[in-house]
Amino acid sequence: MNEKKFMNPYLAGFFLGLILLATIYITGRGLGASGAVKSVYTAAVESILPGYTANALYYQEYSKEHPGNPLKNWLVFEVIGVVIGAFISGLVSNRLKFKLEHSPKSTAKIRIAGALIGGFLFGFGAQLGRGCTSGAALSGMAVLSTGGLITMAAIFGGAYLFAYFFRKLWI
């Protein structure tokens, strides 16, 4: 069976907007993703090195903001949902398969290195910028937060600025 076509982007955007609106109406907060990585990381360090986290500044600030078990966090549950939802979508559209995707002009090795470095930069940047494309840019636009829109402009502006230098990876 062939993969199904993707949804019309305007329709998908409209649905995504309604999901975000419902999230704000019900919970008073927006969507997110990178925050879950932070929670899982913090939980891992806390269980491996319990004495260490009590003293390091970052973990003290974290537990001040999020008391209790770092895994009992709204975004962790939301991201578990994202995994389930994306899996269901892949299932109904015949897109479930293990695959390392890379441009025909590039190699698997380069793609692996690119994904690792890209993820590293995004993970770091999202901590510094207090949110990623979901938490800062999209949710920030919905509530018209100045900081969210500045982060959004910087993400997309930065990507356009650097795109030329990495064009060989994609085209």
Partner: peptide, 27 residues
């Protein structure tokens, strides 16, 4: 600063955190 670093990560890595989780879920 965070935004620019994320932009760089975007063109090198090809994903953002939300979309990477979603893509990982389908393999």
């Amino acid at each position: 600063a965070g935004g620019f670093i994320m932009g760089l990560g975007f063109v090198i890595g090809g994903f953002c955190p939300g979309t990477s989780v979603c893509a990982a879920a389908i393999g």
